[in-house]
Amino acid sequence: MISDTQQPILVNLSAMMCAESCILTSLNYRGLDYRYFMLECWSLLYESSLILAGKNITRYDLDAVYGIQTLEVNGGIARLIEAVGNLKISIVSTLSSKLDFFPDYQITFESEGFKHQLVVVDYDHHLDAFHVLDPIANYSGKIKSADLLRASTEETGFRFLELEFPQNPKVIPVCEIFSRATMININRMGINAESVKAMRLDVRSLAMWDERKRNQWLEQNNLTIATIIKARQMVWNCYVELNVLPECNYPLLNESFHRIIGEWTSINFFLLKYKHQQQSGAKHAHTIDSKLEHVFLAEKSFIELLYALGQTAG
């Protein structure tokens, strides 16, 4: 059982990356270096007309680096109890609006069909309560099983990802982890390209949308791009902290990274300009479209350079 006085370190990658934040928090809770996982968190998706920095939680391979076995489960309370404690942790799909501890101001995209995940680490039989960690809400505490069930995304029971940790964690050289992460990131560039292309198509059609729909798109993507910027910065910090970058290449990589952040920040600025200066919408849309192309090319160049260095390291 977990003591109420213990305060596990919650790792919040960004509000729109709660699945990844739950994985990071789970790793950190078990005393593993979550930065290894962070190295491969460079992705883009355009989903429900939103540009995002995450991907499907079940597509992450936690076995290669950590030796963690994962299993997708649909089950009731009894099955979830089996999936926590000892060497197991579970990441449960919920509706944030149904969680009493979740701040109202953070409930942003549930109406767009986005689900929220939290980490379940233990079960208290005396209280009939689960101990949960929610990195997005900055919450660590107990929740009655009936209350967690009420917040479930499923009509009956729960949908969750069961993580089974090994008795003896894997020990892999950091250079190999770096090499693997750069390969994963470069293999994802095709999806990133399609995502940016889809967003650019919407940008070009904004003028044809009614004002309410257009403003909603501008506001929501302004928020999601802010999370992309935060996530990119955290990923870059992990590359630097793990000391995997050759010293001679660091200045170029650092400059390239800050160019990427500058491009995303500029896109956000013009999204706001479009919203508040709609009479100049065509001009702003053209600028946003052009900058989306620039930021993708900047990211592609950056990831290709990391990949080249990673293959040398590995």
Rank of each mutant, 00 (worst) to 15 (best):
S3G: 08
Q6E: 15
P8Q: 12
S14N: 14
C18N: 00
I23T: 01
L24H: 02
T25F: 01
T25M: 03
L27E: 02
W42D: 00
W42E: 05
L44F: 05
Y46L: 07
E47H: 02
S48K: 14
L52Y: 02
G54H: 02
G54F: 00
A64Q: 11
V65S: 03
E72G: 01
V73N: 00
V73W: 00
N74R: 13
I81S: 08
A83K: 11
G85N: 12
K88H: 15
I89Q: 02
S90E: 08
S90W: 10
I91A: 09
S97H: 11
S97Y: 13
I107F: 06
G113Y: 06
L118P: 01
H125I: 11
L127W: 03
D128Q: 15
A129I: 09
H131I: 05
Y139P: 10
Y139E: 11
S140Q: 15
I143W: 05
D147E: 10
L148P: 01
A151T: 15
E155S: 14
T156V: 14
L161E: 04
L161P: 02
E164S: 09
N168A: 12
P173L: 12
E176M: 06
A181L: 10
T182M: 09
N185K: 06
I186M: 11
N187M: 13
G190L: 10
I191V: 14
N192C: 15
S195V: 04
A198M: 13
M199V: 01
L201W: 04
S205M: 12
L206A: 07
A207Y: 14
W209I: 00
E211V: 15
R212W: 05
K213R: 15
L218F: 08
L218V: 09
T224N: 06
A231I: 07
R232Y: 14
R232N: 14
V235H: 04
W236C: 09
V240C: 11
E241C: 03
L242W: 10
L252N: 08
L252Q: 09
L252P: 00
L253R: 01
N254T: 13
E263W: 11
T265I: 03
S266M: 12
I267V: 15
F270Y: 15
L271E: 02
L272C: 05
H276N: 06
Q278N: 09
Q279I: 03
S280I: 02
A282M: 08
K283E: 12
H284A: 09
A285D: 13
T287D: 07
I288T: 10
E293I: 08
H294K: 07
F296R: 03
A298N: 10
K300M: 06
I303L: 03
E304R: 03
E304T: 02
Y307T: 00
L309R: 03
G314C: 10
G314Y: 09
